[in-house]
Write a protein that binds this DNA or RNA. Structure first.
Lengths: 248, 248
DNA sequence: CCATCTCCTTGATCATGGTCATGGAGGCAT
DNA sequence: ATGCCTCCATGACCATGATCAAGGAGATGG
């Protein structure tokens, strides 16, 4: 007895590491967040699921032609930009449900490379189709505006961090921010694994690797966190939050 | 003999410091950049021209309710954010044709204050009407996406500046960037007036005022610029551009 | 299981730019 | 004009974090 068409489709999708937005656990955080079922189906139809990226693989490279934005489904990535012959600069880390590539719209070129930090699955959203759909679905358009606006806001925070905070405050901010992002995604805010190296963290925070190591050591001695390699246990979130403030 | 209606309207507008987008010298840089005449008229209709801000006046304050984005018509402004009881952080300077307030869409609150640095005129664009119009006019929507995308790109540049560049490179970048922005607006790229104080510049670049002063002095000795108070003359743009690079 | 490489840690020294202190210059109101 | 501010410049000193150096830990592949 043959399975019905819907099931067959379902099976094929799952074999290709695909799922539909309707079933995705991230749908409450991701772009289709505000969509009715019917609209979500339309949105779902333009998504291209990609085969997973392996650690170190690039989603795209700086300078390549812009065509799509991408939503992270699982795993994590870093964005890096190179200028002249200078060293790379890590400008962002991306976690599941976050949107990658929005800064390429303007010049139709990706202004940075985005590299997987671990095995990572991605939903590709062709931008011209997204734009067209955003004409028909105001909620989708609103969500897109909001995503970009939020990224602008986060950038301002990062500027403040880079120009006013001490090394200790930067690390504390980094951990509390990560903790918060994990919590919002339903993971433990106290216990998680860093997918990025110390070098990536230092580069992102504007610090030398050695400084990152030293401060992590100090945080451990102070009983704020417990760090073993890339495993992190936050022991005193309150104190970390206090450290992260740059006022006083 | 009565003047005709169009003239009367024109007069009233100019009395209120108003002009229409069609006549605005900035229209090739501003939001309506890509619009046909007919679309531009629709866009023009939702704009509210405001009476000029005086130096030091706020366009809006951090935390107030988001309702509009704003286009700078003449003059300049700075964006500052306060965190806790900490010192303000200058996160941006805005020049004519640039769009202010885009980072408030997400949380429906302006995340920073925006203050006029001199007498400044502004076009107010109510966001809900802009959004609605962007549904009907794809070019407008595209331009809005591009504006936000560009701001994201500029933010990445700023992060690189703050985390990798030396004090000299930061100042050189600041001047070359300003020079470029003036050039694009049809002003001299070599000779201009700074509307912001040394303190604002230092705050923006993550430097102490004293450092800004010292480096400006050094730049003068090196024959790169001539600075007298807030008047700037760029004598050697090439060399400044070279200084501004962070590679080598 | 060993060799190799990358990643991380820790120590010693140094340099950039911050802080503190002071004085001058220019704008603005009286 | 005169005094008062704010803004800017310059000098002396200091602190934070970078750089240099070396070694250990953990992963990866033969």
């Amino acid at each position: 007895m043959p399975v019905n068409a819907a099931n067959a489709l379902g099976k094929r999708r799952s074999l290709l590491h695909e799922t539909r937005c309707q079933n995705c656990s991230l749908s409450s955080l991701c772009l289709p967040l505000a969509l009715e079922l019917e609209d979500m189906e339309q949105f779902d139809a333009i998504i291209r699921r990609r085969s997973p990226l392996k650690k170190g693989e690039a989603l795209f490279r700086q300078g390549s032609a812009f065509s799509s934005v991408f939503a992270v489904r699982s795993g994590s990535l870093k964005q890096t930009t190179t200028e002249g012959s200078g060293e790379d600069q890590v400008t962002n880390f991306y976690l599941p449900s976050e949107l990658v590539g929005l800064d390429g719209i303007d010049e139709q070129i990706y202004p940075g490379s985005v590299i997987a930090l671990e095995t990572t699955t991605i939903c590709e959203i062709p931008f011209d189709r997204l734009d067209t759909l955003s004409e028909q679905i105001p909620e989708l358009r609103g969500q897109l505006y909001r995503s970009m606006s939020k990224e602008l806001r986060d950038d301002r925070k990062m500027m403040r961090l880079l120009s006013r905070k001490t090394a200790d405050q930067r690390l504390a901010s980094f951990f509390t921010s990560l903790s918060d992002r994990f919590r919002r995604r339903g993971y433990s805010p106290y216990s998680f694994r860093l997918s990025m190296s110390r070098a990536d963290i230092g580069n992102y925070l504007g610090l030398a690797v050695e400084t990152v190591s030293r401060i992590l050591g100090r945080f451990q001695q102070q009983g704020l966190v417990e760090v073993s390699g890339r495993e992190v246990n936050i022991l005193n979130l309150e104190a970390l939050l206090a450290q992260a403030q740059d006022d006083q």
